[in-house]
Design a protein around this nucleic acid. Structure first.
Lengths: 214, 214
DNA sequence: ACCTGAACACCGTTCAAGT
DNA sequence: ACCTGAACACCGTTCAAGT
């Protein structure tokens, strides 16, 4: 990695440094992460973006990890509860889509949240809603858990991949010269674009729900 | 994070430092990662575990990232090609199980591989085999791609979660006092143990294959 | 109660110099 | 061709001291 210059723009209200608070720190941390990803967040840079020495932050957060955790909590807090009216299928689909919307709106914050161990307390409310929906769909208790974990696994894995593609960290289109060697890839996945990601995600959720019903 | 003492055991044949090579470096890097995860791998520690200064490594790898990439490549190279005889379903299942076996045998190396952008070149051979199997199952080209990505997403997401649980980074059993608030979780997922992970993974793969067939 | 200065124990990487 | 020494520009975190 090149030791490139790192010019940091002061975050939010920035300057004064008076009235440091968990919330002001979290906002500044998120804006740092938005710009450069998790590795862009250092205690020293965070401090300076708030007009304060790095060490001042330790009065409000135990350590760097705690800030990243708070960021994950923030992300989950942005999920609004599902509309009551709709059927169980469109409710599950709606939650999945909303989750992905969050990822698309805040890709770097989402990357942080998804690459850390998932605290159960964070996901429990959502888990309850989804399990309830699957019960309405007529699935047995064991089946519900099964399908829930298939969904959650898929969503996490797929969105990590999608964010990597959108950030240019890996390619969606496969190298043309390699396709010759792999006929099935060539036949099935010849060319894909960003717009296919919508279908791929929605379709994955549907595949799992269909499969869950036998 | 506490600045704890880091005693490093010399890796493999360690001592001499003569005959440094990409392979010797990769082995040492993997053993460092096995012991302490990705963050346990620093160029300086890696050098000292090989009886060499950190800077010597740059004669064989471009930088730290390149070492982590080589580790991901190594992991995929450990996947043996699927048995020819079996049906398409058990072939896909077999590949998934073998992949998980790799994760269980080398959890930290796997964690490294799974948290980095997936290079297409690395996954293409496997992708071809899986798409071929799904074609044998009678799925249309579009459907094949759909189900392939559902599988890959699920496998990545689920195994990241499972590794976090097995490493004690997050809890499998849900906090008993929270269950009261979430009746559906309580009813469906009251208690789970490590042995349920086998079922959960295999079942997830099956759900996706079933769903892929309508 | 909250912030600073100085220090400790680290990082990845470059580059000129040695062999 | 391969390795070392010294340096540069960073890290997270602790702790005594200031206000």
């Amino acid at each position: 990695m090149v030791a490139k210059k790192r010019t940091v723009v002061s975050a939010g209200g920035g300057r004064p440094g008076r009235g440091l608070s968990r919330d002001r720190i979290l906002q500044a941390a998120m804006s740092l992460v938005d710009q450069e990803g998790e590795q862009g967040l250092s205690m020293r840079r965070l401090g300076s973006s708030l007009g304060v020495e790095a060490m001042a932050i330790y009065n409000h957060f135990e350590n760097r990890e705690a800030i990243l955790d708070a960021m994950a909590d923030w992300l989950f807090s942005q999920m609004s509860p599902p509309g009551a009216g709709a059927g169980w299928r469109s409710m599950v689909r709606g939650l999945a889509m909303e989750f992905r919307g969050l990822a698309l709106r805040h890709p770097n914050r989402f990357g942080v949240a998804m690459s850390r161990p998932s605290k159960p307390a964070r996901a429990l409310p959502l888990m309850d809603v989804v399990l309830g929906a699957l019960a309405q769909g007529g699935m047995s208790p064991a089946r519900r858990v099964q399908v829930y974990h298939a969904l959650v696994g898929f969503i996490r894995g797929f969105l990590l991949w999608e964010m990597d593609i959108r950030a240019g960290r890996c390619a969606l289109e496969l190298p043309r010269e390699m396709l010759a060697e792999f006929p099935h890839v060539k036949a099935a996945a010849a060319r894909m674009g960003l717009s296919d990601l919508d279908r791929l995600f929605a379709g994955g959720v549907d595949v799992i729900l269909e499969g869950g019903l036998r």
